[in-house]
């Protein structure tokens, strides 16, 4: 299963699918990093609305993406962590592992955050 990646101006938006396997996620990481370089993107939005679970592995991978993306000069925002998933993540102890990553309720909000940070010069120009 291939994750769809949309290009929206200077940003990339990846919509993760339900029933996404571990290898799909690792594949996504590669593709995203490659595209960030190719399009000189300033931000990456990871939309996780459709995921049924955010376990240790998924969290670690998303955090890895965010860290790698930031090394390439772009910001990452995770969007769409649903209430019950957020609660489960906290119970697992995953919340502190994502403390360096930006989160937003929806795409609109995520775009607003990225725009603001770019205006404030926090991402590459």
């Amino acid at each position: 299963m291939n994750t769809s990646i949309l290009k929206q101006g200077p940003y990339l938006i990846a919509i993760l699918q339900a029933g996404q396997s571990d290898s799909d996620l690792l594949q996504l990481q590669e593709t995203l990093l490659e595209q960030v370089g190719r399009f000189r993107s300033r931000g990456v939005i990871l939309d996780v609305t459709l995921l049924d679970v955010m376990d240790s592995f998924a969290t670690r991978t998303l955090r890895g993406i965010a860290q790698a993306v930031s090394l390439r000069g772009a910001e990452t925002v995770i969007v769409g962590i649903r209430p019950e998933i957020a609660f489960a993540m906290v119970q697992l102890g995953l919340d502190t592992r994502l403390s360096g990553v930006l989160t937003a309720l929806d795409l609109e909000e995520a775009l607003a955050i990225l725009n603001r940070r770019c205006r404030e010069g926090m991402c590459r120009d």
Binding site: P83, A86, M89, V90, A110
Partner: peptide, 12 residues
Amino acid sequence: LQTVSAARLMGA
């Protein structure tokens, strides 16, 4: 604390 943390994950 957990509630605050979960809300943050959601973006609030």
